[in-house]
């Protein structure tokens, strides 16, 4: 009975395991070996070289990509969590309107990336974009700004759109955490004369500290995985000023067919992801898979 159950179990999970081995683990291994192989126009010419990594490091764009990726991931995460905390605190207020907003705010999250990218690309358009036009006609700026055409601005514009897309879920998770802060603790603090800010700082914040840490790390993973948004909005341009790892990998692989450099960058990206995932597992060490299931 037990033995047959065990066989049945393995048979039942086999398709899932095979699928993940074939389409995630296999490709990961494959790109790692490719990065150590000399590749010329899609032809493999010998394994066991660090040439691709040297070529990557020698690419004048490489430094810029690292810098942009840092803005993208760190700036994006920081803003996502800060704005999310603000909005989440607001959504946690009991009222019919916030209840309704809690449902509505997920809209940016469920919308396909491509739709979001197109909507914002148009709104930020240099000539006919509504944001530039509104700023100009209200006299705030003298001319319309080409938000996505200005190398100094473009990366931050992408981060702003990223916040629009990713912040809602952060806000909702933090809202749920804030709403589960025990009422009696807040009441006791109020009795002791703590004002709203002090209650937030000394009661709410310690109670949601775990959610806040977890959501910060998860945001980093989400943002690292995001590709369609920057790719469609700018394609890494103008002149690589918004090139991040994801768009660089895509461009090197499928526009320049520079597979050596692309695979080297993919490996760098995987290492970065692995360290964020390790951080995630460390933060969540008390509530990983099996315990959560019970």
């Amino acid at each position: 009975m037990l033995r047959s159950d065990r066989l049945l179990a393995y048979a039942m999970i086999l398709p899932v395991v095979i699928a993940v081995l074939a389409f995630v683990v296999g490709p990961t291994y494959n790109v790692a070996t490719l990065s150590l192989t000399q590749v010329v126009m899609g032809q493999e010419r010998g394994f066991g070289t660090l040439g691709n990594f040297r070529a990557l490091a020698a690419d004048p764009v490489f430094g810029l990509v690292l810098q942009n990726t840092a803005i993208w991931i760190l700036g994006g995460t920081l803003l996502c969590v800060t704005v999310g905390l603000g909005v989440g605190t607001f959504l946690a207020i009991d009222s019919r309107m916030t209840g309704w907003l809690r449902a509505l705010i997920l809209l940016p999250w469920v919308l396909p990336d491509v739709v979001t990218a197109m909507a914002w690309k148009w709104m930020l358009h240099g000539q006919v974009g509504i944001i530039g036009q509104t700023l100009e006609s209200s006299g705030i700026t003298e001319d319309t700004i080409s938000f996505l055409g200005d190398p100094d601005l473009v990366m931050w514009m992408l981060v702003i759109v990223l916040i629009w897309r990713k912040m809602p879920l952060v806000a909702l998770i933090l809202c749920a955490a804030i709403r589960s802060v025990p009422d009696d603790q807040l009441e006791a603090a109020r009795m002791d004369g703590a004002n709203a800010v002090e209650r937030f700082r000394f009661v709410t914040l310690p109670n949601i500290a775990f959610s806040l840490t977890a959501v910060t790390v998860i945001s980093m993973i989400w943002i690292t995985a995001e590709f369609a948004l920057p790719w469609i909005m700018t394609g890494g341009g103008p002149a690589n000023s918004s090139q991040i790892m994801a768009t660089y990998i895509y461009q090197q692989s499928f526009e320049f067919f520079n597979w050596g450099v692309a695979s080297a960058m993919s490996v760098v990206n995987l290492f970065m992801l692995a360290s964020i995932v390790a951080l995630y597992l460390y933060v969540n060490r008390r509530s990983w898979a099996s315990e959560e299931l019970k």
Binding site: V16, V25, V31, T224, M245, A246, I249, F254, S266, L281
Partner: peptide, 22 residues
């Protein structure tokens, strides 16, 4: 199960090239 869940986090741009090759 833990491994399966973690595999989700790696489904990003780094897999584009090897997936194309596969």
């Amino acid at each position: 199960l833990g491994g399966l869940l973690i595999s989700r986090m790696f489904q990003g741009a780094a897999l584009l090239l090897p997936t194309y090759r596969l």
